[in-house]
């Protein structure tokens, strides 16, 4: 009998054995975890909290980004006309402007109409009644095409040069600033996610390391009766995957609870600014992504822990 004959179990048989062990562990590992409920629960909660934080930030930024997009789309440019421009000329001009490809709508507000609107909105009727003449100029309000969100200073210059136009007002600078802050916040979320993923990795790695220490005797026996390193590693990798799976699910639940708690007050703040908040929730796809990422990170943590510690445990 040569070495090869005795070692060469068929490849199929080995694959079957590999699969049987996975099947066995799939049933066994949850039982092992439930047998130590407090330790398992603590690990799951730590993972969940670590994942909840960046996810909440992410959802918040997603909501704000939606808002600024809405404002950009609704951004307006106001052309204040010279006082000597007649209503007819102004209407003709607004028609001309509407013909431009960048412009989605143009609305002329005559001085009288403007005064009426102002009277209605400002509540300064008594004061306005004391005026001899209407001080307001005619205004053309322009909204850009949806794909033309950047109304642009070029356009502003062009319109300023028109003889009928006294002044062009484009108040988007603060929006741009908000946009920049959001980009910064997004980077912060990525950084936070990376750091807290590292935390998950370390927590799972450490938990697995302790679990390896606890099962030291078992590992020794397994090695003496011919268990390969892969066989010894497998239960711990399964354990890591379960930590990730349950921790990820807990994180999604936590995020939903936090959003449910925050949503009413956020909605009322938003309403006071005259905007409706949408998309302040975690979609199913995003939830699945979080669970998947949690599993992957936990698996990496377990793999690093087993690589580091299982080789050291050898029968003597």
């Amino acid at each position: 009998m040569t070495r090869n004959q005795s070692v060469a179990v068929g490849a199929n048989e080995r694959l079957a054995g590999w699969w049987r062990h996975h099947q066995f562990l799939f049933a066994q590992t949850p039982r092992d975890l439930i047998r130590k409920p407090i330790a398992s629960m603590l690990t799951w909660l730590v993972i969940a909290i670590a994942l909840t934080l960046p996810t909440l930030f992410y959802v918040g930024i997603k909501g704000l980004t939606g808002l600024t997009d809405g404002w950009h789309a609704g951004a307006q440019m106001s052309l204040f006309l010279q006082t000597d421009v007649s209503d007819e000329r102004a209407l003709a001009l607004s028609e001309e402007l509407l013909a431009r490809p960048e412009i989605a709508s143009a609305r002329y507000i005559a001085p009288d109409q403007g005064l009426a609107e102002f009277r209605q909105q400002s509540g300064l009727e008594a004061l306005l009644d004391n005026l001899d003449s209407n001080p307001l100029p005619g205004v053309i309000e322009l909204t850009p095409q949806r794909d033309q969100l950047d109304f642009g200073e070029g356009l502003q210059m062009t319109f300023s040069a028109l003889p009928e136009v006294a002044r062009v007002q484009l108040d988007l600078a603060w929006l741009e600033r908000l946009g920049e802050m959001l980009v910064f916040a997004q980077k912060l979320v990525w950084l936070l996610s990376a750091l807290l993923s590292l935390a998950v990795l370390l927590v799972v790695g450490n938990t697995i390391r302790m679990s390896i220490e606890q099962r030291r005797d078992e590992i020794l026996v397994v090695k003496v009766v011919g268990g390969t390193d892969a066989f010894v590693r497998r239960p711990f990798l399964h354990m890591g995957a379960w930590y990730g799976l349950i921790g990820g699910i807990f994180a999604c639940v936590m995020v939903q609870i936090c959003l449910a708690v925050l949503a009413p007050s956020l909605a009322s703040i938003a309403q006071s600014y005259g905007v409706t908040l949408t998309a302040l929730s975690l979609s199913i796809g995003e939830s699945l992504f979080i669970i998947f990422a949690s599993i992957v990170v936990s698996l990496v943590g377990s793999r690093l822990a087993v690589a580091r510690h299982i080789r050291d445990i050898e029968p003597s």
């Binding site: 179990v9 048989e13 080995r14 079957a16 054995g17 590999w18 049987r20 062990h21 066995f24 026996v221 397994v222 009766v225 011919g226 268990g227 390969t228 066989f231």
Partner: peptide, 11 residues
């Protein structure tokens, strides 16, 4: 059962 499980035997 441990050595048999390691050898990948069927249940």
């Amino acid at each position: 059962a441990l050595p048999l499980q390691i050898a990948g035997m069927s249940p």
